[in-house]
Every structure is written in structure tokens, then in C-alpha cells.
């Protein structure tokens, strides 16, 4: 999303804006999955839904950052303006991520700081990375294609109605 935002400011092409939007949607979705599954696990393991541990706080703040992007985006009507504001916010939010990380480090921790996984678990985890990354890339791609198809449909509509006006004008 950061890369797409920088690319938009640089080249001012709509496609980068669509890509950034698609990436933000997927980021919100994935961090929501992390938060929800983490909460269910914490309920079982620690007996409570939520604690203010650094890691949970970090995921929550990330989720809020990108959710704000999605909430503000549709309220800006001009497409060019929307793309620009969103691109700047995308960059600023990305710069915020390491700061969020280091500020949560200041809190008292409940999570283990490092875990030695059993070899079998390591294998499972590294195999798990590939499909999740593919799912992530696939979802971004689908959202991007939907945005492009939407704009093409609007363009086709507009030119069709222009043609209709043209022929009726010619007939009269």
C-alpha cells in the first residue's frame, strides 16, 4: 500500500490509487482475522478476551490506522482529490508503523518474547506462509480488478448515453 501510494504521488495514475485501496482493504481484513482469532485463543489460554499486551495493542492500532483510511476514503467526492489525500495518508500511516511498534514495546508484556518451536511446528508454519501470502495477493488482485471494471463500466455508460443524445439530437 505504501509503494502504491508513493507511485501515485509520483505518476498520478489512477491505477495506483486502486491498488492502494485494494491493499488497505486486505490489510484491514487480515488484521481483523488476527485480532479475532487471537482473542478467541486468549480467552481459552489466559481466560480473558483482551489484555493490553504490546502485541495486541500493536495489531489493534494497525487495524485502526487502516480502518480510518477506508472510512474517510468514500467521503471525498472528487476522484483526483480522493486519490491524493489517500496517497498522503497511506504514506504517513506507513511511517507511523515502526513508531507504533516501538511505543508498544514500552508497555509491560505478557506474551513470550521468543518461542522455540518444535521442528514439526516450524515446518507447518513455513508451509502456511505461502498460501496465506498467495491468498493476500489474490484478494488484492481481485479488488483491484473490480475497481478497474467499475470504472470501465461507468465510462461505457457515459459514452453510450452520449451516443444516445447524439442520435436523438440528429433525428430531431
Amino acid at each position: 500500500m505504501f509503494a502504491a501510494s508513493v507511485a501515485y504521488i509520483w505518476q498520478r495514475e489512477e491505477k495506483w490509487d486502486w491498488l492502494a485501496h485494494a491493499a488497505a482493504e486486505v490489510a484491514v481484513l487480515f488484521s481483523m482475522v488476527v485480532l479475532l482469532t487471537g482473542m478467541i485463543w486468549a480467552r481459552k489460554a489466559w481466560g480473558m478476551w483482551w489484555t493490553w499486551s504490546p502485541r495486541l495493542t500493536f495489531s489493534l492500532v494497525l487495524w485502526l490506522l487502516y480502518l480510518a483510511y477506508l472510512v474517510v476514503r468514500p467521503t471525498i467526492e472528487s476522484a483526483e482529490r480522493r486519490a491524493m489525500v489517500c496517497a498522503v495518508y497511506g504514506i504517513i500511516a506507513f511511517l507511523d508503523v515502526p513508531l507504533v511498534y516501538f511505543s508498544t514495546k514500552l508497555m509491560l508484556d505478557m506474551h513470550p518474547s521468543s518461542v522455540d518451536l518444535a521442528p514439526a511446528m516450524q515446518v507447518t508454519m513455513s508451509f502456511w506462509f505461502a498460501p496465506v501470502l498467495m491468498l493476500c495477493a489474490g484478494l488484492i488482485r481481485v479488488r483491484y480488478l473490480i475497481a478497474r471494471a467499475g470504472l470501465e463500466a461507468v465510462d461505457a455508460d457515459a459514452s453510450a448515453s452520449r451516443r444516445a443524445v447524439g442520435t436523438s439530437g440528429g433525428g430531431a
Partner: peptide, 17 residues
């Protein structure tokens, strides 16, 4: 909406300090 989430690290760090 835009500013509060961005400022959370500031608030977190300063209240902890």
C-alpha cells in the same frame, strides 16, 4: 478520524513515561 489513530504511539509513549 485521520489524526487520532496516527497519534496513538505518542499517547502510549507519553502516558507510559
Amino acid at each position: 478520524l485521520l489524526v487520532f489513530p496516527l497519534c496513538l504511539p505518542l499517547i502510549l509513549a507519553s502516558t507510559q513515561m
